[in-house]
Amino acid sequence: MSAIQIIPIEWYLTLSAILFGMGALGVMYRKNAIILLMCIEMMLNAVNLSLVAFSAHHSDPGAQVFVFFIMAVAAAEVAVGLAILIMLYRNTGTTDVEVLNRMKW
């Protein structure tokens, strides 16, 4: 007996919402830019989880292909984001996002 017959989709959506909310909380709570990137990964994973749940409940492989593309985009995003972070660290000596407030003015 597999999970799609037993576990209702609402449970998966609630778990996904909690995970997304925790990612959003982390983005607001932390000041370290690397942790912010990790929280963004967590939010992407929450969306992936709900997409896979929908895919399994509708017997549609299209959503899983979509998740595959989201993973590819996340990998590219992390590579570029960490390169920007290293450049930022080389210029300012810190990964604190509060230092980057010069774009306000």
């Binding site: 999970a3 799609i4 989880l49 896979v52 899983q64 993973m71 992390v78």
Partner: peptide
């Protein structure tokens, strides 16, 4: 969770890409 949802390929890719590379 992916394995529970019968998405075996995505579970493998998820472990390889996220836990392995990122």
């Amino acid at each position: 969770h992916y394995i529970l949802l019968n998405a075996q390929f995505l579970a493998a890719v998820h472990v390889i890409v996220y836990a392995g590379a990122i």
